[in-house]
Structure formats: C-alpha cells, structure tokens
Design a protein around this nucleic acid. Structure first.
Lengths: 228, 228
DNA sequence: CCAGATTTGGAACGAGTGTTCCAAACATTC
DNA sequence: GAATGTTTGGAACACTCGTTCCAAATCTGG
C-alpha cells in the first residue's frame, strides 16, 4: 500500500527523484534523535529564541546565517519557519523583546530600588562591569542594531528611536527627582545632562565593542558622578 | 582566421559555449563605452575608491555587495580585482585612508588653526552640523566599522583602537594646553574629561545614525562647553 | 611588424543565501 | 478507525555571493 502510494507520488513530483543521488537516502541510516511527536513541539520556543538573541546580539543581522541560527537554536528549518516566520521577523521579534524586557525592565528596576542619583550611577556601573566581562565586546543590542540597520530599516529605526528617547526621559526624571531631594546639583539643566548621559552611555557601548581598555570606561563613570 | 581560432578554442573550453543561451552574446549589440586602452586604465583609481568609501560608509561592509560596488564605482570585475585585490582588501584600504586623511587631517587642522578650547568645540560643532545635514545618518566610518567588525576582525579592531586612543590623546593635549592658558577650567582632570569627550563624540555618532532629533545633539554640544 | 604587457568586459564558478515544499509520523477528533 | 491537524527532517529551489578566468584589444618596446 505505502509503496504504491510512494511510486504514484514520485511520478507527479519529479524533482524528488534526485534524492537517490545523494548516496544516503535510506531512513535506516540517519541519526535518530526523538520520535516525532506531532501534537507537541519538541523544543522550547523561549530557549530557542534566547539562543537566537545571543547570536544576533554578538554577530549582528547580516553576519548571522540561517545555518548559524539553526545550529545554535538546535532546531530544523521546518520548525524554524513554522514558529518564527523568517530570519527578519525573528530578528525584529528578538530586538523588540530585548527592548521591552531588558531595557524597560532594567530602568523600571532602577527607578524602584534606588534613589535617583544611585539609579543613574548603578546603570553606568553595570555597563562598565559588563564591558569588562567575558562577553564585553557584544555591546548593547539596541546600539548594535542602530548602527547596522537603523539607516536602512524603518522598523528598526522606530524601535531604537523610542528606546533612546525613553532612556533620555528616564535620565531627565531621575535628575529632576534628585534635584528635588538635594542629591543632584541644582545647577544641572535636566535636559542637557539627560541627553549627555544618553550620549555617554552609547559612547561607552561603542568603546566596549571596540575593546577599549578598562580605564577609559572607568573615567567616563567617574565623569558621570561629577556631572550630577 | 579569427573564426577558426574561435571554433578551435570553443572545443577546448566547453563551458564557454553557454554564452549563446543568454540571448545577446553578439559583440555587435553591446553598449559601447570606450575603446580599450591597454596601456592606461580608463577610470580614475582615486575617484573609484572614494565612491567605494561612500558606499561602505553608509551601508557597512556586509550589506554592500560586489554588484553595488561595481555599479557605483563604474568599473567592471576585472578592473576591480586587478586594482583593489578583493572586497575585503578595499574595505580595509578605504577605512585606513579615512582614518589617516579624515581623522588625522581634521585633528591636525584643529590643532593648527584654533586655540585648544575652540579646537574641541569646533570638532563637536562640526559633528553636530554633519548629523543635521543630508548625509546625517551615515555617522562616522570608524564608529560604524567598530560596531560591525571590531569584534570579529583583528585588522579593523587595531585600526579603530589606535584611532580612538589618538583622539583621546588629542583631547587630553587640548585640555592641558587650555588649562595652561586659562581657557579651560583648572579643576578638570585631563584624563577623565578627555575620555568623556571621546565617549560623547561616539555617542553623538550613534545618535546621529539612529536619526535622533537635532536638539539632542545640540544639548550634548552645550554640555561639552560646560565641561571645559 | 611582431611579441609582450596590460586593461577590459563579462561568462562562469562553486559555495552559500534565505526560503519553500512535502512525506512521514501519530495524537486527537469526528 | 478514518480523517484531521501539526511537527519534523531535510532535499530542493532560486538566487546571490565574492572570485576566477580568459579572449579581445592594442599600446609599447624590440
């Protein structure tokens, strides 16, 4: 029964006939992984996406190939396209999640757990420390995306534009609150200093990606203290 | 004579026979440009390289294809490889020339023509103006190269590493000279402020590439004045 | 006036790109 | 218990990538 079905189908789909040319078309010899479980994906979507995020983050969009992606996510093409749509869609998805979970999350946490002055300094300290660590040269996903794609892709430009202006707003709010409670110098213009902090933050990210020596970033953190 | 030569050669190089399939293989119908002048290139190497520079600068390395390159340089593959070696070699060449002629040139000019304080402020003003212009989102070639390639390519990392540390040294020297003649505040730590200026400069370049609104960059320039 | 040198145009190459397609598998639903 | 719905693995596809190759052209030096 099955054999006859196959031979009938093969006639109507001639391009499949080439499989015999590959030399190992037999199902008996392929590596066995899991029995197919059609009612349930046999990988964790969130884990796979996080792995893709790590790869896009450190290599960028263009330099990451589908093969890289499938290898590190440990899924196959069919599952990839069924779950994530396309390489581009996954990238935008991952960028947006980074923005929402990482950037927004961090800023909210800083706002909630620290005094205004400490919140700003803690953020800069965290960036300095991250740059000094093992994954130092991957920088900031949003900054990387800006440099690679903002000029040519409107969706990316929109995401990073919003991210930057919200970060600026965070700095401005922290400065105004710090001035109210006397921990930040009253002579600071909240707009000017907030924008400068944004500039310094992004500058640190470029320097980190370029592998600048640690004292450079330390001096910038030092300067931030003096700005407040 | 020629015909017989051709037919003899065609037998020994069967892959060339496909040309007839393209539909317009005849020499009589191709667009005429210049008579071949084997004793002299019929394009200006410097012009072609400058055009390549503009393309790499705005699109980055990976996103620039050979077709893009040949189109904008207005030369063909043979001339390209004979003159520039490869896409990668051309990119490194162009990056190095940008570094030498643009960055070194600008810094030397600023040193020569301005007082220390003015030199720094003029540089930041120039970056702000450039970002506001038509080509604003192309940013800085060195910063772009850093973000795209420094983590994966040692040659690029070396070039940008030197460029950044020399820019830092420029700022430090200007600050020390400015302190000597009283135009820059004596309380500024030359190392700290120089590194912060480098950070702000690169930050401006990221913001520019992300299409940030002009007031953001203006505020940063304002902050630089107050730092000095 | 012929051999050598050198540029040009563009076909071809082989590897690699992102994506599509589909049969096999089998729990669930009708 | 047949039809449905969904996942999986991977061959195949249609390009595009950067690069190589080479004949045609015709200058210069012999």
């Amino acid at each position: 029964m099955k054999f006859s079905d196959r031979s009938k189908r093969r006639i109507s789909r001639p391009h499949l006939d080439r499989s015999f040319q590959t030399g190992y078309g037999s199902a008996d010899h392929r590596n066995w992984k899991h029995p197919p479980m059609p009612w349930k994906k046999n990988f964790d979507v969130d884990v796979a996406r996080d792995r893709a995020k790590a790869l896009f983050w450190s290599k960028g969009y263009e330099a990451t190939s589908m093969e890289d992606l499938l290898g590190c996510m440990d899924i196959n093409r069919g599952s990839f396209y069924a779950t994530f749509g396309s390489k581009q869609a996954l990238y935008l998805d991952v960028l947006q999640r980074y923005d929402q979970h990482y950037r927004c999350g961090v800023l909210d946490q800083l706002k909630a757990e620290f005094t205004p002055r400490e919140a700003i300094l803690t953020l800069f300290e965290a960036v300095r420390k991250e740059a000094a660590g093992a994954k130092g040269t991957r920088g900031c996903f949003l900054a990387n995306a800006t440099m690679e794609l903002a000029a040519s892709d409107k969706s990316v430009a929109k995401i990073v534009g919003v991210a930057f202006s919200q970060t600026e707003a965070f700095f401005k709010a922290m400065i105004e609150h710090g001035q109210a409670d006397g921990t930040i110098r009253a002579s600071a213009d909240p707009d000017v200093v907030a924008r400068s902090l944004l500039g310094l933050l992004l500058g640190m990210r470029v320097l980190a990606r370029g592998g600048s020596p640690a004292p450079v970033l330390e001096s910038i953190v030092q300067q931030v203290k003096e700005l407040l």
